Computed example of a mutant assay.
Amino acid sequence: MKTEFESIPLVKNEAKKRFEIEIDSHFASIVYKETSLQIALIHTEAEPELAGTGAAAAVVEKTLQYIENSEKKLLPFCPYVFAFIKKHPEWKRIVDERFEGYDQL
């Protein structure tokens, strides 16, 4: 994660069912679904003003840290999150082993 994003807090916006970070009034976010044991990440999005800044990667990494700290398992349905974990295989440790694409990570 780029250092300029490290101090930006991750917000779990339960009303919108998304994890989000705000940069200069613009949002990068991940839509999620949650159970008592798992958090499924569905879709990552960054507003056009944040394109190419690393904001999407930052919200993914902060969300993965949140999931790990919550001691839940991850279901990476979002293709961006899935690709992020392939690029950073140390995060496979939080993926639920029963996830259909687990062996491709």
Rank of each mutant, 00 (worst) to 15 (best):
F82Y: 13
K73D: 08
E6K: 15
E68C: 01
A51G: 13
P48H: 08
R18V: 09
E6V: 06
F5D: 05
E71F: 08
I23F: 12
A83R: 15
D24Q: 11
A57D: 15
E45A: 07
I23Y: 07
W91A: 00
S25P: 00
T3C: 00
E6M: 09
R93P: 02
I42K: 02
E90Y: 14
D96P: 13
E90S: 14
T44G: 02
D96V: 06
I21W: 10
V31S: 06
A56C: 06
V60M: 00
K12T: 10
S29P: 00
I85T: 13
L64T: 02
Y66M: 08
I21R: 09
P79M: 04
V81E: 10
L74R: 09
L74I: 03
K2C: 04
T35M: 10
N69W: 01
K87N: 15
S7L: 07
E49G: 03
I8G: 05
F99T: 00
A55D: 00
I8A: 03
T44S: 10
E47K: 08
K2M: 12
A15F: 12
F19A: 10
Q65T: 14
R18C: 14
K72R: 15
F77D: 14
Y80P: 08
A56D: 02
E22K: 08
K16D: 12
I94Y: 01
L64H: 04
V11A: 08
T3G: 02
E45L: 09
K12R: 14
P89R: 11
R98G: 05
K86W: 09
M1H: 13
S25N: 14
H43V: 07
Q104M: 05
L74H: 13
G101K: 15
C78D: 13
W91N: 01
K62Y: 03
K72F: 08
I23S: 04
T35S: 15
L105F: 13
E34A: 13
A51R: 13
S29Q: 05
K92G: 05
L41C: 06
L50Q: 01
D103E: 14
M1R: 07
Y66G: 06
I42P: 00
I39P: 02
A40C: 00
A57Q: 14
R18T: 10
E71I: 05
S7C: 03
Y80H: 15
V59C: 08
I67T: 06
Q38S: 05
L74Q: 07
I39S: 03
A57W: 06
L105V: 04
I85W: 11
A15C: 03
A58Q: 01
